Computed example of a mutant assay.
Amino acid sequence: MELLDLKGKRALVTGGTKGIGKAIADELAKAGAQVIVTARTNPDKTPHHFIAADLTDANQVTQLAKEIDNAFGGVDILINNVGGLTTPSGGHSTLTDVHWEQELELNLISAIRLDRTLIPKMIEQESGVIVHISSVAGKQALWNLNLAYAVSKAALNSYSKALATELAGKGVRVLTVAPGATKTAPMVRFINDYATSAGITAEEGMKQLLAQTGGIPMGRMAEPEEVAQLVHFLVSPSAAYLTGAIYAIDGGSLPVVS
């Protein structure tokens, strides 16, 4: 248990007020970490230290870093969880420049921007862990459903790997977690919207969506808490020799070897 203990660690979880982000924040707090969460709004009244910020706005990222530095002196753990599918389905012809730009800004640039702001303190203290929350879509794009989102996550995977190599000798580990279908409110809305547009039930919509990815061998979606437990392990002393890897947590759905 000592190897999973996070007492004395300062952790920032972006998008930490709901879904996977909330589950991660709660899990790290249970392990003893001092948890800071950020999101544009805080409707859930989180028990963790909350700082409002829109990470697609460079000025707000700078202000976030200043507040963290003033209150906590930096962070030991950074979970880049902010992201999401915001673009319409239908393939390349439905996606405008604005669609592509907003998806890249949300799922890639926001993480790069925050990393660049907080990494110097990690290098100075010669320790730190960064986890980028990606998606199995980064390795398996569905052209008719999530093209821009999948491309942005594939770019995040590549960036994360390169950053890990750069920082490996400076005491900072960088890892990527790629969830598959996870039972969150946005996922439920996505399934319901898809089913409504197709004129089928939500259950039928879920079956159709999962069929496009080959299904889930374990027969169910992940719970947010299961993703959080993986993240907890990766940021803990138990994972001290791990960096640069992508960890899919998808119930076996990704039909590739690596």
Rank of each mutant, 00 (worst) to 15 (best):
E2G: 13
K9E: 15
T14S: 11
G19K: 07
I20P: 01
I20L: 13
K22C: 03
E27N: 04
E27P: 02
K30T: 13
A33Y: 03
A33V: 07
A39F: 07
T41A: 10
N42W: 06
K45R: 08
P47L: 04
P47N: 08
H48Y: 07
H49L: 14
A52C: 09
D54Y: 03
Q60A: 08
I68N: 00
D69C: 07
A71C: 03
F72N: 01
F72Y: 15
L78Q: 00
V82Q: 05
G84L: 02
L85C: 11
T86Y: 08
H92Y: 04
T94N: 13
D97N: 10
D97H: 11
D97G: 11
W100T: 06
W100M: 10
E101S: 12
L104Q: 13
E105T: 05
L106P: 03
R113M: 05
D115W: 06
T117W: 04
L118Q: 00
K121I: 14
E124R: 13
E126V: 12
S127Y: 08
I130V: 15
I130L: 07
I133R: 03
S135M: 00
V136P: 00
W143H: 09
W143Y: 11
L145P: 01
A150H: 02
K153E: 05
K153D: 04
A155I: 10
Y159H: 12
Y159R: 04
S160W: 07
G169I: 13
G171Y: 07
V177K: 00
A178Q: 04
P179S: 08
P179C: 04
A181M: 09
K183T: 10
R189W: 08
I191L: 02
D193L: 08
D193V: 04
I200K: 10
I200Y: 06
E203F: 06
M206D: 02
Q208C: 03
L209Q: 05
L210W: 10
A211D: 13
T213P: 00
T213R: 14
G214K: 04
I216Y: 06
I216S: 05
M221T: 06
M221F: 10
A222I: 12
V231W: 07
H232M: 05
V235N: 13
S236K: 11
A239Q: 09
A240S: 15
Y241E: 09
L242K: 01
L242H: 05
I246K: 05
Y247I: 10
Y247T: 06
A248W: 07
S253N: 14
S253R: 09
V256E: 09
